[in-house]
Design a binder for these strands. Structure first.
Lengths: 243, 243
DNA sequence: ATCAGACAACTGGTGTACCAGTTGATGGAG
DNA sequence: CTCCATCAACTGGTACACCAGTTGTCTGAT
C-alpha cells in the first residue's frame, strides 16, 4: 500500500490533486488536463497520468480514453452502493469502538460530537449556507466518523472507511445549499451510545445513523438526477457519416 | 472504477498479471521485471508500470523504487488488519443475503457449500496436498464467499469484499501443505443459516466463520514469521563507507 | 436563422530513451 | 579460506515524442 521508501513524483501528484478535490477547490465536472497539471506541478505528464489512474480507481475522477478527464461526481446508484458498503464498515467500526476504545478516545469522541452538533445547528439557523462553509462542515463530519474508525488502530480498516466516506462526502458537499435539518443532538446521542453502550447497541445506533443519511441522499438524488447532467458529462456525439 | 470505454493495454496488463498471481502461477517473492513483462505481453514498459502501480495499491505486489518489484506476501499484521475489514464486510454480506437473496440464489449457495465441504473433506484425508490442488480449493472457497457477496447486487460492495478476500486467499494458498481440519459440515451449516435464518443469525454465523479463520491464520503466522522472510525480501545492505 | 459538415486544437495512451539507485557477483587483500 | 570493496548489469521512475480519437467552433449551404 504505502511506499516504504521515499515518495515519488507520482505520489506527490496524487496527494496534491486528491486534496484539491477533497477540499472542494476542484468541483465535479472540472476538466483536468494531464499536461496542464504537469506544468503546474513542474513535472512531466507521465507521473500525473499515473496519479490520475489511481484517482480513477477511487472514483474521484473519470477519464475517457482520448476525450479528457474530469472531476467526477458519483452517480446515484454508486452512492447507493457506497452506502451499502458504508453500512457494513461503519456498523463494525462502531462495534469495535464500543468494544475497545480507550477512555481518552471516548472522551475525545464525545467532545467532537458536541462540536459537530453545534456546527450543524448553527448552520440550520442560517438562511443561506455559503458553499465553502458547507464543505467545511461536511469535512468536520467526516473527521468525526474517522475518529471512530481509526480507534481500532487497523490501517487497512480505517482507510477502507475513509475511501467510502470520501466518495460520499465529496458528493454531499458538492451540493451544499440545502441542509436537511438534523436532530438537535444527533451526533451527541450517537457518541453516547458508542461510549457507554454495548457493542451491539453501538452497531445498531450507527446503522440507524447511516440509514438516515441514505434516505436523505436518495431523496436528494431525485432532484439532482435531471439537472446537472449536462454539466457533468460532455455532450455525446451520435455518429459521423451515414454513407 | 470501470473504464466505460474500450480497454487499454494497461488494463490488459493489469488483468493478466493479476490473474496470474491469483491462480498461484506466480508465487510470492517472484521478481517481476517491468521490461520482461512488457516483452512477454508485447507492449512497452509504460502500461506495465501502470498496471504494477495498480497492483501495488491492492497489496498484491511490492515495488521498491529502483530495486525491483516482487509478488508480495502480506505481512501477518496486514492479514490481521484485513481480517478486521473482512469481518465487517462479510457479516454484512451474510445479513444482506439472508434479507434479500432470491430462492435461486439460496439453492445455489447450498449446492456450492456442499461441493466445497466435499472438497475440503477429501483434502483432509490426503496425506499430502499438492500446491496446485491447494490453490484450487482456496479459489473455490473464495468463490463461495463471493457468491454470498454478489447476491446483494451492489458492485461497490462485492468488489470490496473481493479485494479483501484476494489478499487473504493469496496468503492462504501460498502455504498450502498444512490444511487444518475443518468441521465436516462447516460450510453447509453456514449456508443453512444464511438461507433459512434471520439476518442477525446469519451475520453472527458468518462472524464465527470468519473468526475461526482468523485464529487459524494467526496460529500459522507464528510458524511462518521467522522462516520465509529471507525469500520474500532481498537482503538489505547496511551502508557503504565509514570515512 | 438553422443546421450539417469539416477542421484545428487538444486529449489520454503508449513507445523510446535516459537516469539515478540497487543488487549480486567478482576479484583482490588480509 | 574469509571478507570486503568494487563494479557491471539491471531496476523502476520520469521525460519526451508521437499517435489516434474526441471536442467545440467555425463555415457554408439551405
Amino acid at each position: 500500500m504505502k511506499r516504504t521508501d521515499g515518495i515519488t513524483l507520482s505520489d506527490l501528484a496524487y496527494e496534491s490533486i486528491r486534496t484539491t478535490i477533497l477540499e472542494g477547490r476542484l468541483t465535479p465536472g472540472t476538466p483536468l488536463s494531464r499536461r496542464k497539471l504537469a506544468d503546474d506541478l513542474g513535472m512531466s505528464p507521465v507521473p500525473v497520468g499515473d496519479a490520475i489512474a489511481r484517482l480513477e480507481t477511487e472514483g474521484l475522477v473519470e477519464s475517457r480514453p482520448r476525450a479528457g478527464t474530469r472531476v467526477r461526481l458519483a452517480t446515484a446508484e454508486e452512492i447507493l452502493g457506497n452506502y451499502v458498503l458504508r453500512e457494513a464498515l461503519e456498523t463494525h467500526s462502531a462495534r469495535l469502538f464500543a468494544e475497545s476504545a480507550t477512555t481518552a478516545q471516548r472522551k475525545n469522541l464525545l467532545r467532537a460530537a458536541e462540536r459537530l452538533d453545534l456546527t450543524y445547528n448553527s448552520l440550520a439557523r442560517m438562511p443561506f449556507v455559503p458553499p465553502e462553509r458547507g464543505a467545511a462542515v461536511e469535512r468536520q463530519h467526516m473527521d468525526f466518523h474517522m475518529l471512530i474508525a481509526r480507534a481500532a488502530g487497523v490501517p487497512a480498516f480505517s482507510s477502507a472507511v475513509e475511501r467510502s466516506l470520501v466518495l460520499l462526502f465529496n458528493w454531499l458537499f458538492s451540493r451544499v445549499p440545502a441542509f436537511d435539518p438534523f436532530p438537535e443532538r444527533w451526533h451527541r446521542d450517537l457518541a453516547e451510545v458508542l461510549t457507554t453502550g454495548t457493542p451491539v447497541e453501538a452497531a445498531e445506533a450507527m446503522r440507524i445513523h447511516v440509514r438516515f443519511r441514505i434516505n436523505e441522499a436518495m431523496e436528494r438524488s431525485k432532484t439532482i438526477a435531471a439537472e446537472p447532467a449536462r454539466m457533468l458529462r460532455g455532450p455525446q456525439r451520435a455518429k459521423s457519416k451515414t454513407t
